[in-house]
Write a protein that binds this DNA or RNA. Structure first.
Lengths: 191, 191
DNA sequence: TGATTCACTGACCGCTCGTTCAGTGGGCTG
DNA sequence: CAGCCCACTGAACGAGCGGTCAGTGAATCA
C-alpha cells in the first residue's frame, strides 16, 4: 500500500515493494500470482477501509443533511490519517497502464467506484422521497458531491496549513444544501 | 495526443506514438529532446485548447451565474468534441510515473491546474464583492465546482446515452446557486 | 552530373522490470 | 541424528522500454 500510494499504480515496482516489505522479490510470488493481482488486492483492501469508515459514519445519521455531514467528515478524517491512500483513491476513476492492465482495472476499480456513487445516489433518492431534497437526478448530485468533496480533500492534503476540518465540512454541507446565492442566508444546521 | 490520451501519460510508448504518427522512432527525437518533453508539450497543447475555449466563453458573460453557465457549457461541449482529451485533463491533478517524471509533472501540470482554479476563484471573489455570491472561501468553491462538473463530464462520456447537455448544465448551475434544499424552488434562469 | 544537404529511418544498445526456480537453512518428525 | 519439509531467497533470464547513430535517398546546388 505504501509503495503503490507513493509511486502510483503503474510505477510501483515489485523490487521496491519487496524491499519495503522486508522480503525478497521471489517471496512476493508466493502470495500473489503476478503483479496485477498484487495491485488489485492492495487496491481493494485500501478502498474497503475507507468505505467501511464512511458507511459506519453515515449509518447513524437520520436526515440527509446529517448523512452528508457524516460522509464528508468521515472522508476528511480518513484521508487526514491516511494521506498516502489518496493516490489510490483518486485512481479509482481512470484506468492506467497497459491495455490488459486497463481492462483489469475496469473490471475491479470502476465497479467499486460506481457502487459508491450509486450508494450515495440511493441516499439522495430516499431524501428526495422524504422531501428533504428537491427533485433532481440523484446520480448527478451524488457524482457532484463526491468529486467536489474529493477536490477539497486533495487541497487540504496539499496545503501547508488548512483551516479546521469543521470549517470545510460546514462549507460543503452549506454549499450543497443552500447554494451560493446570497439572498436568503438560511444557514440550515438542523435538518 | 491520441496515444497519450488512450494509454495514459506513463504507459504511452515512443514506439506507438511514432507508429500512429506514421514516422520512425528516431524521427521523434528530431522534434523532442526526450520522452518527457514530448509528453509535456503534448499536454500543454491539449490543455491550452480547453482553456482558450473556456476563457472565450466566460469573457462575454456578465453575472456570476452567466459565467458559471458559460464555463460548464464550454467544458461540456469541448469534451463532447474531444472525448480523448479527457484522460489528459484528469491527470492534471495527480502526478504519475517515475519519481523524476513526477517532479517534472509537478512543475508543469500542477501549476496549470492551480492557475485555472485560481482564475475561477478570482471570478468568485468578484462575485462576492458584487453581492452575487454570499461570503465564502473562493478557492474552496472554485475547487468544488470545477471537480464536481468534471465528474459529470466523465459520467456523460461514459454513459451510453446522456440527457441533453442543457439539462446537465442547468442542474449544475441550479445546484450551485440554490443548493438542494427544497423549500425555495427559485429556478433562476433570468439574465 | 557529381556533390552536398538533410529529414528520416530502424537496427541496435543499455537498462529496468516482472517473473522464474535451483538452492538455502531453520525447524519438525520418527 | 538423519531425513524431510517448506517458507524464503536472489541470481539469472527475457521482454520491452527509451534513446542513439550510421546509413538512405530524394531534393537541391554548383
Amino acid at each position: 500500500m505504501r509503495v503503490i500510494a507513493r509511486k502510483g499504480m503503474s510505477a510501483a515496482t515489485i523490487a521496491e515493494i519487496a524491499d519495503e516489505a522486508g522480503v525478497a522479490k521471489g517471496t512476493i510470488y508466493l502470495y500473489f500470482r503476478d503483479r496485477d493481482e498484487l495491485v488489485e488486492k492492495t487496491f481493494e483492501t485500501a478502498i474497503a477501509q475507507l468505505h467501511a469508515r464512511v458507511d459506519t459514519a453515515m449509518a447513524t445519521a437520520r436526515s440527509f443533511q446529517e448523512k452528508l455531514r457524516a460522509y464528508v467528515t468521515a472522508k476528511f478524517a480518513f484521508f487526514q490519517e491516511n494521506r498516502e491512500f489518496f493516490r489510490l483513491y483518486s485512481s479509482l476513476r481512470m484506468p492506467e497502464g497497459s491495455p490488459q492492465q486497463q481492462r483489469r482495472q475496469r473490471r475491479t476499480c470502476q465497479p467499486q467506484y460506481r457502487a459508491r456513487i450509486e450508494a450515495m445516489a440511493a441516499e439522495v433518492k430516499v431524501a428526495i422521497g422524504k422531501g428533504e431534497v428537491r427533485k433532481m437526478d440523484p446520480m448527478r448530485l451524488a457524482l457532484f458531491l463526491v468529486e467536489g468533496s474529493t477536490a477539497i480533500v486533495l487541497e487540504r492534503l496539499t496545503e501547508d496549513t488548512s483551516p479546521p476540518m469543521q470549517d470545510d465540512v460546514d462549507l460543503i454541507v452549506d454549499l450543497l444544501m443552500s447554494g451560493v446565492a446570497p439572498n436568503k442566508p438560511k444557514r440550515s444546521r438542523t435538518n
